[in-house]
């Protein structure tokens, strides 16, 4: 480990990739929501409109945790606080 800054940045890149991986579970959940919505539309075609709006609402709610992971990875990539801490540490 010759350059600690490079080490910090490399770890940040890897952890950003891991943070985006929660998209796997979010996709599973969204697929579940869509499948259930299609099932209920097939059972009750006359209620299609209300089922569709509720499905979109549910999809957006499920998406929240995926968005959190995305934000964590964006913060790690573009506004990493650890780099500043390290720079202060060697500066002071």
């Amino acid at each position: 480990m010759q350059d600690p800054l490079a080490f910090i940045i490399a770890i940040a890149q890897i952890s950003a990739a891991i943070a985006v991986l929660n998209g796997l579970l979010v996709t599973l959940g969204q697929g579940n929501v869509a499948a259930k919505a299609i099932e209920s539309i097939a059972r009750q075609p006359e209620a299609e409109n209300s089922i569709r709006t509720t499905m979109f609402l549910g999809l957006a709610m499920v998406e929240t945790s995926g968005i959190y992971g995305l934000l964590i990875s964006i913060i790690l990539l573009f506004a990493n606080p650890l780099v500043n801490i390290y720079l202060q540490h060697i500066g002071g």
Binding site: T64, I67, L71, I74
Partner: peptide, 16 residues
């Protein structure tokens, strides 16, 4: 927090 992060994350990811 959740209400604002939801919209922020969606729009920001699209823009990026």
């Amino acid at each position: 927090v959740s209400l604002s992060f939801r919209m922020f994350g969606n729009v920001l990811s699209g823009m990026i």
